[in-house]
Amino acid sequence: MTERQATIASSSGLHARPAKLFVSAVKEKGIPITISVEGGADLNAGSILALMGLGAAKGSVVTLKSDAEGAEQALDELVALLETDLDAE
């Protein structure tokens, strides 16, 4: 299982536009990926509803996981996306 942690950088957290961009990026990877906040359940990172339910605000640390082939590179790219202020772009 490959696992990475990321700190949410977007000022609105993982909601609205940042969530939409993140879900699109997850779907482009074509592998199953989960996301969770500390102490929370692993949720489908490719689901906008799951992301909205996380309640991940700016500064929250989330964990991404996948056991699929190519997960290392995919998770690294997704971490970079989450650690970018997507509201500013």
Rank of each mutant, 00 (worst) to 15 (best):
L75I: 10
K27P: 01
Q73N: 14
M1S: 12
A56N: 08
E89Q: 13
T2P: 12
L64Y: 00
Q5S: 07
A68H: 09
I48E: 00
V23R: 00
G40C: 09
D67T: 01
A80P: 08
D42A: 14
A57D: 13
D76F: 11
K27H: 12
E38P: 07
T34I: 14
Q73T: 15
A19T: 09
A71V: 02
D87G: 12
T7R: 13
G55V: 04
A16H: 13
A56H: 09
F22C: 04
G70C: 08
M1A: 14
I33Q: 04
L54N: 03
D67G: 15
G13K: 05
G30H: 13
D67R: 09
A80I: 06
L75C: 14
L14V: 04
K65A: 05
G70I: 12
P18V: 14
S12V: 12
E69N: 08
K20T: 15
S66I: 00
S47T: 03
K65V: 03
A74N: 04
L64C: 01
A41K: 10
S47V: 08
L51H: 05
L86K: 11
E89L: 14
G59Q: 05
A71Y: 03
A6H: 03
R17I: 08
Q73Y: 08
K27N: 12
S47Y: 14
L49D: 11
I35A: 03
A6R: 07
T84N: 09
G46W: 00
E38C: 01
A57R: 15
S36L: 06
A45R: 01
G55Q: 00
V62K: 01
G46Y: 02
T2G: 11
I8D: 06
V61D: 04
M52I: 06
S12E: 06
L82C: 06
G39Q: 07
S66H: 08
N44H: 10
N44F: 07
G40K: 13
I8S: 02
L78R: 02
L64E: 01
D42G: 02
V37G: 14
L21C: 03
L75Q: 04
L64H: 12
G40H: 09
G30C: 10
T63H: 08
A45Q: 01
G70Q: 13
